[in-house]
């Protein structure tokens, strides 16, 4: 579980920093955080690292990804 969290966190971090696919970073970092938290509760190795990296990935990809709903609709989602 800890290793899975770490792997998801690292992949999320990589995707999160690429502007067009930053949404993949958010999608992967969430299960990374869940697995990291469960793993840390059970005292598994790598869980803390996985949790921290997944949180960092979520924060970074959120900064780049989150756009106001009004802004997105103003820009036209399907163009």
């Amino acid at each position: 579980m800890g290793v899975a969290s770490l792997v998801l966190g690292i992949i999320a971090l990589v995707f999160g920093l690429i502007p067009v696919v930053d949404w993949i970073g958010i999608i992967l970092s969430i299960p990374g955080i869940i697995l990291g938290a469960i793993g840390k509760k059970k005292g598994m190795s790598c869980a803390t690292a996985g949790l921290v990296i997944s949180i960092i990935a979520l924060v970074l990809s959120s900064i780049l990804y989150i756009a106001c709903i009004a802004c997105a609709s103003a820009a036209g989602a399907f163009n």
């Binding site: 067009v20 949404w23 756009a67 709903i69 997105a72 609709s73 989602a77 399907f78």
Partner: peptide, 12 residues
């Protein structure tokens, strides 16, 4: 690109 556009834009 189109799929990314759909995923990046618009939420309810």
């Amino acid at each position: 690109e189109y799929f990314s556009g759909v995923m990046r834009g618009g939420f309810v």
